[in-house]
Simulated scan of single mutants.
Amino acid sequence: MKTLVTLIAASFLLVLTGCNTVKGVGQDIQKAGEKIEGAAKK
Rank of each mutant, 00 (worst) to 15 (best):
V25S: 09
A9L: 13
D28I: 11
E34Y: 11
T17G: 08
G26S: 05
V15G: 07
I29L: 10
E37V: 07
D28Y: 15
E34Q: 11
E34N: 10
A10D: 08
K35I: 08
K35M: 01
L16F: 15
I36A: 01
T6Y: 09
I29H: 04
K2F: 10
I36N: 02
K41D: 01
T17E: 03
D28G: 15
C19V: 14
T3H: 04
G18P: 03
F12C: 09
N20R: 15
Q30K: 15
L16A: 12
K31C: 06
A40N: 02
K42N: 08
K41H: 00
L16I: 14
G24T: 09
A32N: 06
G33I: 05
V25C: 10
G18Y: 13
L14T: 09
K35Y: 07
T6K: 12
I8Q: 03
K35H: 07
T6H: 09
K31V: 11
S11A: 11
A9R: 14
A32G: 01
L13C: 11
I8A: 05
T17I: 13
N20G: 12
Q27F: 09
L4C: 02
K31H: 07
Q27N: 08
K23A: 15
T6R: 14
A9I: 15
Q30C: 11
I8P: 02
L16G: 06
K42C: 03
V5L: 11
V22R: 14
A39N: 01
M1R: 14
V5Q: 06
T17P: 00
T21I: 05
L7M: 12
A9P: 02
L14P: 00
Q27R: 14
T3P: 00
K41C: 01
C19F: 15
I8F: 07
A9V: 15
K23H: 11
G33M: 12
I8D: 02
I29S: 04
N20P: 04
K31S: 09
L13D: 07
V5F: 11
T21K: 05
F12W: 13
E37R: 12
V22D: 03
L14W: 06
L16S: 14
E37G: 06
L13P: 03
A39Y: 05
V22Y: 15
I29P: 02
E34I: 15
G18R: 14
E37F: 10
T17N: 09
V25W: 08
A10C: 07
Q30A: 15
D28H: 15
A40T: 00
L16K: 10
E34C: 03
K23T: 12
K31T: 10
T6E: 04
G18C: 11
K2P: 00
